[in-house]
Write a protein that binds this DNA or RNA. Structure first.
Lengths: 227, 227
DNA sequence: CTCGAAATGTAATCGATGATTACATAATGG
DNA sequence: CCATTATGTAATCATCGATTACATTTCGAG
C-alpha cells in the first residue's frame, strides 16, 4: 500500500466545467469545492471503514484537494476526527433507536436485550466507526457537545429501561446503578472483545459471535431477574 | 513538548570508561551499549506509562543512541511494540497470579472474584500497558508466541475456576462457555470503560470505581450462582 | 452592477516520524 | 592476533500534521 507517487503534478484542474452550483438549501454553502467539509468527513469515514490510518492528507487526496485545504475547515486533525465521530455516533444512535422501535415497549428487559444486541451488531458491522466513538483515543471526547449529548441520551435510555423493570418488580436487586453499569460493561466488553480480536483466542468462531452475544445477554438478564 | 533540537551534535560519546562488561549469564549479551534491546523496551514502556506517544526515535533518544540503532534489534516499530507488550503481559500475569495465591483455593467463585478485581485494578494502575496488551492495535497480536501463551494460560485459569464451580454444584447453568465469556466480557468491559473514559459520563467518580468494580463482579457472581 | 472584503483553496515549507542504506567500530573466537 | 560479525552512526527518503504567503472565487453593500 505504500510507495505513493509524491511527484504527481496534481493535474492542475482545468476548472472549466462546473457551471455555477446554485445553492439549494436556505443555509447556503457552495463555495469553490462545493462542500469540502462534508466530503472530507465522508472520506475520513470511509478511510476508517477500510481499516486504513486516517490522515488529513489522504482525506484531502480523496477529495482531490491540496494538503492544506482541510485546515480551512478544521483547525487540526483532531477536529476532523471529532466531526467524523459525531457523524458515526449519529448513525449509531439512529440504528439503536430503530432497533428499539421494533421491540415490545411493554417489556423493559426485552428492550434491554434488544438494545444490547443492536449495540453489539453495530459494533461488529462498523468496527472502525465504533472504535472512534467509543475510545476517545482519536480526539478529546468532551470536545464535542453533540457527541456528549447523543451519548448521554443513550445512557438515559438504558437507565429508563431498568427503572421501569424495577417498577414492575422484575429485578432481584434494587441497586439500579450497579445493574446499569454491569449491563453496559457486559455489552461494551463483549463488543470490544470482538473488536480487539480476543475471540479467536477464546475458541469463538466469527460465525458464532452474534449468537453468543444473545446468549451472554440472556444470561445476564436471567441473572438480574427475579426468581 | 515539541521543538526538540534536531541539530544537537549528539555529544560524540567519549566512551572512555566502561571497562569491559563481562558477561554473566550463559546466554552472552554485552556488546557496545550493554543491552540496548532491554533499555529500549524499558524506555518504550515508560513512554507509554507517561501517556506519551511511543516512537522508536524517542526510545532511542532516551537510550542515548542514534535513531537507526533500534532497528538492529527490532525489524520495525511493531516488533518493538510486541516486545513491550510481552513485558507488560508478563507483569500483568504475575500480578494476577499473586492475587490468586492469596485467595481461598477451596472456593472457585471467590477465586473468580479475586481474579476479576485484580484484573480491573491492574488495568487501572497501568492503563497504557493494559491498552497495549489488550487491543492489538499496536502490533499484530498473533505475532508473539509468548504473548499468546501467557494469554491462553490466563484464559485456562478462569476456565478451570468455573469448571470447578460447576463440579461443586454452585452454578445455575451448565453452559460454561457462555458463563466464561460473559464473565470476561464484564470484567474486560468494566476495565475498558474506565480506560476509555466512560465513567465520568455515567456519573461514576474516580474514587468510586474500584468499589463499583467489586459490586459489579459480585452482582455477576450472584447472578450465575445457584438459588 | 461593481468592487472590495471575506471565504476558500494552492504552493511551499517546517519539524517529526518510521524506515533503509552505506559506513565505521568494537567484541568474539578460531 | 586478526578476521568475522554484531552493533551503532550518519545520511537520506517519503509521509505526516501544521503553518504561512499568496491566489482566486464568492458575496453583499453601495
Amino acid at each position: 500500500m505504500p510507495a505513493r507517487q509524491t511527484s504527481k503534478p496534481q493535474i492542475s484542474k482545468p476548472q472549466t466545467s462546473k457551471p455555477r452550483a446554485r445553492r439549494q438549501t436556505p443555509e447556503a454553502r457552495p463555495y469553490h469545492h462545493g462542500d469540502l467539509r462534508r466530503v472530507l468527513i465522508d472520506a475520513a469515514l470511509q478511510l476508517a471503514a477500510e481499516g486504513a490510518e486516517v490522515s488529513v492528507r489522504e482525506a484531502a487526496r480523496r477529495a482531490a484537494v491540496s494538503p492544506g485545504a482541510p485546515f480551512r475547515h478544521f483547525p487540526n486533525r483532531d477536529a476532523l476526527m471529532a466531526a467524523v465521530a459525531e457523524e458515526a455516533q449519529r448513525r449509531f444512535r439512529a440504528e439503536i433507536e430503530a432497533a428499539l422501535a421494533e421491540a415490545p415497549s411493554a417489556d423493559p428487559l426485552a428492550r434491554f436485550r434488544a438494545f444490547g444486541i443492536a449495540y453489539v451488531r453495530w459494533a461488529m458491522r462498523y468496527p472502525a466507526h465504533f472504535e472512534i466513538i467509543s475510545t476517545g483515543r482519536y480526539f478529546a471526547h468532551g470536545s464535542s457537545a453533540e457527541l456528549t449529548r447523543d451519548n448521554d441520551e443513550l445512557v438515559a435510555l438504558t437507565e429508563r429501561m431498568l427503572a421501569e423493570a424495577a417498577e414492575q418488580g422484575l429485578l432481584r436487586s434494587t441497586d439500579l446503578k450497579r445493574i446499569l453499569i454491569a449491563g453496559r460493561a457486559l455489552i461494551y466488553g463483549f463488543a470490544r472483545m470482538n473488536l480487539d480480536g480476543h475471540f479467536p483466542r477464546w475458541g469463538v468462531a466469527e460465525a458464532e459471535v452474534e449468537r453468543l452475544a444473545e446468549g451472554v445477554i440472556d444470561l445476564f438478564i436471567a441473572g438480574i431477574g427475579k426468581s
